[in-house]
Design a protein around this nucleic acid. Sequence first.
DNA 1: CAAATAACCGAAAGCGTTTTCGGTTGACTC
DNA 2: GAGTCAACCGAAAACGCTTTCGGTTATTTG
Lengths: 354, 354
Amino acid sequence: MGEPTRLKMIAERLNLSESTISRALNDYKDISAETKTAVRKMAEQLDYEPNIHAKRLASGKSETVGYVMPIQSNQITGQFINELMAGIAKALGKYGWDLCVIAPQTPEEEIRIFEKIARTRYISGLVITRTLSDDHRFALLKRLGVPFVSHGRSSDSKESAWLDADNELAFFEMTTHFVKLGHKHIAHIGGPKDYNFARQRKNGWLRGLKSSGIKVPLNYEEITELTFDGGKEAMQRLLEAEVPPSAVCCISDVVAIGAMQALREKGIRPGQEVSIIGYDGLELGAWLDPPLTTMHQPLKSAGEKLAQMLLNIVESGSLPLNNQELVRASLVRRETANAPLSTWPPIRKDSGKP
Amino acid sequence: MGEPTRLKMIAERLNLSESTISRALNDYKDISAETKTAVRKMAEQLDYEPNIHAKRLASGKSETVGYVMPIQSNQITGQFINELMAGIAKALGKYGWDLCVIAPQTPEEEIRIFEKIARTRYISGLVITRTLSDDHRFALLKRLGVPFVSHGRSSDSKESAWLDADNELAFFEMTTHFVKLGHKHIAHIGGPKDYNFARQRKNGWLRGLKSSGIKVPLNYEEITELTFDGGKEAMQRLLEAEVPPSAVCCISDVVAIGAMQALREKGIRPGQEVSIIGYDGLELGAWLDPPLTTMHQPLKSAGEKLAQMLLNIVESGSLPLNNQELVRASLVRRETANAPLSTWPPIRKDSGKP
DNA sequence: CAAATAACCGAAAGCGTTTTCGGTTGACTC
DNA sequence: GAGTCAACCGAAAACGCTTTCGGTTATTTG
């Protein structure tokens, strides 16, 4: 209650000048060890917290990072964003930095906000997510000179800082997992090529097939929107193939859930005739019948890493391209990925050759 | 690019003093209309943005509201939080205010953070969600004198500001919806009494039964954790009732999904033998088979309203208790709530009387 | 032992606003 | 025509910190 502690009070209590207190607390090297400890002790005792506005004004640093919310969070991107934000906020908090939410309503507004940030510098750096394969934000932020880190890569991210799942590896492992279970007819439901991760995941699937010496027909690759309906329709098309697949690598859990629905509607049992693996590790996948096997990447620690990267860049002058990291996703074994049935796919004389 | 515009530059351009510019921009009444327009025009022209740190230091206002993230977002609270935050950020942005994320890791840390906020005042006000029936945060924040608004009520929220769904009404309407469809055996899967909304929803169900002259056995009320498994187990218990229900009002979508699973495992079809309505309006409910009927409340506009309330209180000195609002949830008709079958519940001579 | 060098601290000038307090005009009263 | 009162504006003091620049001691150096 009452007046908060100020630098001045500590100075008076210790018979020192304000500037000495300031430098002591900021660990300047021209302050003796004894006074430093004395100052720190007194500051602790008086519950001192620096006035951030004064601090930021005087130092010219804002100590604030902005998180750009995806413009239309149409997907169940929900939990994803929350955990990431919690991780970022946690890591920043250790350094007294703040995390501010930026919620542009339109792409145009997003650009205006970025320009304003560049002009005013009231945000030290940005975290962006939901990156596209060809994402204009990378070039824009680079041009504006706004420090940023992204969750996810892009065609423009060669020199920028990012943290991303190793999508290629994940889908390689997903595919070889199917192979180990005995599958030979392994399809892929992918996403629009606009999304960088869509391309990477497709490549992982292809490499998995190749390294196992498996060949599949061209129409084993489906491309769809990242929605329930998209997955459902893609699966319907896959089932019309001459030799329908016995295993499907789905680009996301939501798509996988749609695919499962398509199977059920044809009387085909997910995890029996046709095995399915999704991606995202959504909790709700466990609530399905049968529970969806998927791949999961740690999100909260990802947030913390992103924050650390941004701090490196803004504070320590670390180069963005020295802050790039690939994280490995792990398989979450539930019940939709099993060995193939001997009765599926329906055998014909020309099976398996594209 | 280059130096940002300062008050000083505008003053020089117009041959006025800095203080005049400041007051002109802040619409002081001792500035003539002509100079005001001249100043505004020049400010616009020079892309002037006030230095928020200087502004906040000088004015002693921080113009920042904090959003307290739920400590453990164990549920699919995901989309919920995101939309709310986006709404808050949007509304605050109009006034130049910021939204800061506060992510305490433990309840103890939450208290420490609140105390720090009270001490330093670097956060003008807080938004809290996931309120409990008996939530210590209300008393704490009131005692600390930190302005706040909550999404959801509590036993302590008589005099505080809040926005909440009319849970009672929603479950009343849910129940009478079942009645209109012809149901007489309407059960309720509720949540722990710690949650205020759990009590309200239960009361709505009871009122719905009463106003329709329907009596149900005592064991038609189940209490469970707000999880998939909780819903599943509760439904299993309901099915063991002497006369199993033909309709179930579920406290949340997640619980409803668990209940559906319990039905399927017994060979009972959701929406046929037993109708189900959930609550939350989760998108994923539409992906189920059959799609879950539920109730939905607008979230983004809720965020905007919460922000507006906080602004009222902090800026205009509006009393918290004058900022309370109940919003009505609406039914999302999907496929799990239909007329009862004549073959269900299995008729016995002592049916329907508790 | 003078001179150079650390080591340590205080003074003071900012940082860019807001806001109070006078002061200067001109118009208006009686 | 002296006094009153608006209407408008400038001066200047905050707000609480950072950071540079000297200056004073104590310590080392040649």
